[in-house]
Amino acid sequence: MDWILDKKRPICPQLCENLCIIIATGKIAPGEKLMSVREVALKAGVTPNTVQKSFEQLEQKGIIYSRRGSGWFVCEDTHIARETLQQLVRSKTGKYLDDMYSLGLSKDDIISTIKEYDHE
C-alpha cells in the first residue's frame, strides 16, 4: 500500500488524480498498458469497485481506454492528464502560499526562502 490518500476526501477523485500524475509525468507512456484494477486496489488499499469507477471516469475524459479482455491503456493524447496535473500544481501552490502568508511572510520573502532552500 504505497499510495497515501486523504481520509477526508472521497477516494475516487483522488485515484483519478494519482493516475493522471502517473500519465502526465510519463511514468506510463501513451499507448502503454495501465496497471490492472486489482493492482491499483492493492497499491492504494481501496476496494476494486472504486478503482473501476475511477478508470471509467478517466475513460470518459479521454485519458485512458479499455480493450476488451486485455485491460486498460493510456490514450495517445495526454493533454487532459497534463491539465489535471497543472491544476494540482496550482492548488498545492495556493495552499503552500496560504501557509506561508499565515506565518507572516511576504511573497518576496517566500521566493527568497525557496531560492535559498537546499532540498535534500
Binding site: M1, R38, A41, L42, G45, V46, T47, P48
Partner: peptide, 12 residues
Amino acid sequence: RDYIISTIINNY
C-alpha cells in the same frame, strides 16, 4: 492489518 486488507482485496 495491511496483510488482511490485501487478502480481502485479492480475493474480491
